[in-house]
Nucleic acid binder design. Sequence first.
DNA 1: CGCCATTTAGTTGTGCACAACTTAGTTGTG
DNA 2: CACAACTAAGTTGTGCACAACTAAATGGCG
Lengths: 165, 165
Amino acid sequence: MADKRYPGGMTLPAADWLRLDQQICFSLNAASRAFGGVYRVILKDLGLTYPQYLVMLVLWEHGELPVKKLGEHLRLDSGTLSPLLKRLEAAGLVRRERSARDERSVQVRLTEEGTALRERAVEVPRRIATATGFDLAELQDLRSRLERLTTALDGADLTETAGRD
Amino acid sequence: MADKRYPGGMTLPAADWLRLDQQICFSLNAASRAFGGVYRVILKDLGLTYPQYLVMLVLWEHGELPVKKLGEHLRLDSGTLSPLLKRLEAAGLVRRERSARDERSVQVRLTEEGTALRERAVEVPRRIATATGFDLAELQDLRSRLERLTTALDGADLTETAGRD
DNA sequence: CGCCATTTAGTTGTGCACAACTTAGTTGTG
DNA sequence: CACAACTAAGTTGTGCACAACTAAATGGCG
């Protein structure tokens, strides 16, 4: 119980694992929130929150989409998207309408105003990138590591439940 | 406006920046939430949420702390911590008491139950690390990159406001 | 001492994430 | 066709993040 074998072949005392774990999960969490803070300031001009901006990015790239597809792109479910989209609609940036072909589905499409907002958003990424202090290669590298991490976490087998064997 | 110089000396069309930006901010966000999902499952046994676990980690490492110091460690303010600590107190894991020396300050300390929970928590980090599929060196490296990122973002000068130059 | 700026927690309100559930529409099968 | 299984979106409830604010205590400074 004191030491644990690990993929890299290295071992650490369990007490140190607690500290390391704290550092890693915390850094990720902190970086994510720091990012959110920077976006919050920069997006204020556009009247968007960070998650709303992500939705708009997807719509600018893919055009009209059903809520379901939007959720797949963003890894979000209708519980999060429904109220968010309602706010975007209230802001006049998107419209939601039931698909005629499949009445279960709701198509989300940009309004003229929503499409126009893209012009004002094109400068956001550069400002964000500058704020990170990272160069392009580093950002790309970080992105690929994070995607690998997310894939691993999503596919992780967590059945090794506490007490049982 | 089409191309932007960038620290690394590389350039990209603005439209591609929008896509890249989407990828990077989104991967960080997604990784953070994927982490949260894994923690949620693993911490269920301990009756903790992920932010509550972070608070417990700090308390296990540093012992009794005022809310203010706790917030500095976790990059959180009282608006988040106050209700969270109230829930931890309701769960019997911590106690909060006004400092006698400075009555503005509230000391947060572990109860016996809270201290004892550490024994059951020591296996969490290993399970998390395994779920990431990363080896120790990669995790350390990722952590240091994320910390550098957070520092840069926190210190970023965002005064380059929209319209002006 | 009296007064005011500062500091520390806490409260309120908004928005997001997510589990669990509801509602309505669709599809497959006998 | 009837009916069960499934699917899409929305709703409800809990908890977190954060801005803006309030309340109370502290610490200077004239």
